[in-house]
Simulated scan of single mutants.
Amino acid sequence: MGWLSWIVLGLISGLIAKFLVPGHDGGGLIWTTIVGIVGAFIGGYIGSRIGWGEASSLDLRSIGISVLGAILFLVVWRAVA
C-alpha cells in the first residue's frame, strides 16, 4: 500500500474511532489522521498475530482492523495523558 493509501486509511479509521470513543482531543484533522495511521499499524500487528489479517488495502476488513487499533490507541493515550 502506498503512502497516500495509508493517509486515506488513517483519516477514515481515525474519524470513525474518534466518533466511537468521544472525548476532547485537540489537534484536528492532522491528529485524527495520525491516530488512524497508528491504529492501522497496531490493528495490523494484532490482527496478523491472531489470524484476522492485516491492514493492507482500502477494504472493509482493513478499515475495521484499523478502527479497532485506533480505538485501542485512543484508550491507552487518554489513560496515559
Rank of each mutant, 00 (worst) to 15 (best):
M1S: 08
L4Q: 04
S5I: 08
S5P: 01
W6Q: 00
V8A: 06
V8H: 11
V8K: 07
L9Y: 06
L9G: 08
G10A: 09
L11T: 13
L11M: 13
I12M: 01
I12G: 08
S13G: 01
L15D: 05
I16C: 10
A17T: 09
A17D: 00
K18P: 03
K18L: 15
F19L: 15
L20C: 05
V21A: 11
V21R: 03
P22H: 02
G23N: 10
H24Y: 14
D25R: 13
G26L: 15
G26V: 14
W31D: 14
I34P: 07
V35R: 10
G36S: 12
G36T: 09
I37S: 03
I37F: 11
V38Q: 09
G39W: 03
G39E: 06
G39T: 08
I42L: 09
I42E: 07
I42R: 03
G44N: 10
G44V: 10
G44M: 09
Y45C: 14
Y45L: 15
I46A: 03
I46W: 07
I46T: 08
G51N: 08
E54Q: 00
S57E: 08
L58P: 04
L58I: 01
L58W: 02
D59M: 00
L60Y: 05
L60V: 14
R61M: 10
S62M: 08
I63A: 00
I63S: 08
G64N: 05
G64I: 12
G64Y: 04
G64S: 08
G64H: 03
S66G: 14
V67F: 05
L68P: 03
G69R: 02
G69D: 07
I71G: 05
L72W: 06
F73G: 08
L74E: 01
L74W: 10
V75N: 10
R78G: 13
A79Y: 08
A79W: 04
A79Q: 04
V80D: 03
A81D: 13
